[in-house]
Deep mutational scan, measured.
Amino acid sequence: TFTSIVTTNPDFGGFEFYVEAGQQFDDSAYEEAYGVSVPSAVVEEMNAKAAQLKDGEWLNVSHE
Results as ranks from 00 to 15, higher is better:
A21H: 11
Q24P: 11
D55Q: 11
E64A: 13
V6P: 02
D27T: 15
T1S: 15
E57W: 04
T3N: 11
N47D: 05
W58C: 04
Q24R: 12
G35T: 04
G14Y: 07
T1L: 10
P10N: 03
D55Y: 08
E57A: 01
N9R: 08
V42A: 05
T3S: 09
A41Y: 14
T8K: 10
F12G: 06
T1K: 15
S62K: 15
Y30M: 04
F25S: 02
G14I: 08
E16P: 05
A29Q: 10
T1R: 15
A48T: 10
E64Y: 06
N9S: 13
F25N: 01
W58E: 02
A41V: 11
S40L: 13
A41P: 09
F12D: 05
E64H: 14
Q23D: 09
T7D: 04
Q23A: 13
D55T: 13
D55A: 10
V36G: 02
F17I: 04
Y30W: 08
Y34C: 08
S28N: 13
Q23T: 13
Y30F: 14
V61D: 03
Y30A: 02
A29V: 08
Q52D: 10
V42S: 03
F2S: 07
D27I: 14
P39F: 00
T3C: 15
Y34V: 04
A51F: 00
L53M: 06
F2W: 14
L53G: 03
Y30E: 00
S37N: 11
N47V: 05
A51C: 06
Q23V: 06
F15N: 15
F12A: 06
T3H: 14
F12Q: 07
D55I: 11
N47A: 05
T7V: 14
Q24S: 12
V19H: 01
W58F: 10
V38E: 02
A21Q: 09
E32M: 13
A50C: 05
D26V: 06
S62Y: 13
S28L: 14
H63G: 04
G35V: 03
P10G: 03
V61R: 00
M46V: 12
E31S: 12
G22P: 00
G56F: 06
S4F: 08
V38L: 06
I5E: 14
E16K: 12
Y18L: 07
G22K: 06
H63T: 05
A29F: 07
D55W: 05
D55L: 10
D27F: 15
S4V: 08
V36C: 07
Q24M: 14
E16F: 14
G14S: 14
A33Y: 13
V38C: 04
G35P: 01
Y34P: 01
A48E: 11
D11L: 10
Y34L: 08
E57T: 01
G13F: 12
E57C: 03
Y34I: 04
L59R: 00
F12L: 10
N60Q: 15
E57G: 01
L59K: 00
E31C: 11
F15I: 11
S37I: 13
G13Y: 11
V43Q: 05
G22L: 05
A21F: 13
E64R: 14
A33P: 03
D26A: 05
K49R: 13
S40K: 15
A33D: 05
A50K: 01
F15W: 11
D11A: 09
D55G: 08
E32V: 11
A48H: 14
D26H: 05
S37A: 13
W58Q: 01
A50M: 04
S40Y: 09
I5M: 13
E32W: 08
L53E: 02
E16L: 14
N9D: 12
Y18P: 02
F12R: 07
V43R: 11
P39T: 05
E20W: 09
V43H: 04
F17D: 02
H63I: 06
S40P: 15
F17L: 02
Y30V: 03
A51E: 08
V38S: 02
V6R: 00
E45T: 06
V19Y: 01
Q52N: 12
Y18T: 01
D27V: 15
L59S: 00
F25C: 02
G56Q: 03
V42Y: 04
P39K: 01
E45N: 06
A51W: 00
G13R: 09
Y34G: 01
W58N: 02
S28Y: 12
E20Q: 13
E31Q: 11
N60D: 04
G22E: 03
A41W: 15
E16I: 07
A51Y: 00
L59P: 02
N9Y: 09
A21S: 09
V43S: 07
N9H: 11
A50W: 00
G14Q: 09
G14V: 06
F17C: 07
V6I: 12
G13W: 08
A41F: 13
F17Y: 09
G56D: 06
F15L: 14
A29P: 01
M46I: 15
Q23C: 11
F12E: 05
E64Q: 14
E57V: 00
S62W: 15
M46Y: 02
E31T: 14
Q23S: 11
D26Y: 05
Y30R: 02
G35F: 04
L59N: 01
A48W: 09
F12Y: 07
N9W: 09
P39L: 00
V43L: 09
T8G: 06
M46L: 15
S4E: 07
A29L: 11
P10L: 04
Y34D: 04
E45C: 09
V61W: 00
S40I: 13
E31R: 13
E44W: 00
T1G: 15
A50Q: 00
N9I: 08
D26E: 06
Q52L: 14
S62H: 14
P10Q: 04
V38W: 02
K49N: 05
S28C: 12
K49F: 01
A21C: 07
D27E: 15
A21I: 04
E44H: 11
G56A: 02
S37T: 14
S62Q: 10
F15K: 15
K54E: 08
L59G: 01
G13K: 10
F17N: 02
N9T: 14
V6A: 04
M46H: 01
N47C: 05
F17T: 01
E31W: 11
V36E: 04
E45M: 10
F25A: 04
V38F: 04
V19P: 02
V19L: 07
N60M: 15
S4M: 06
D26T: 05
G22N: 06
E64I: 15
V6D: 03
L59D: 02
V6F: 00
G56I: 02
N60Y: 14
S62R: 15
G13C: 15
V61Q: 01
Y18K: 01
G13N: 13
S4L: 05
V38I: 08
Y18D: 01
T1M: 14
G14L: 08
E20G: 15
V43Y: 06
L59T: 00
L53R: 01
E32P: 01
D55S: 10
V42R: 02
E20R: 09
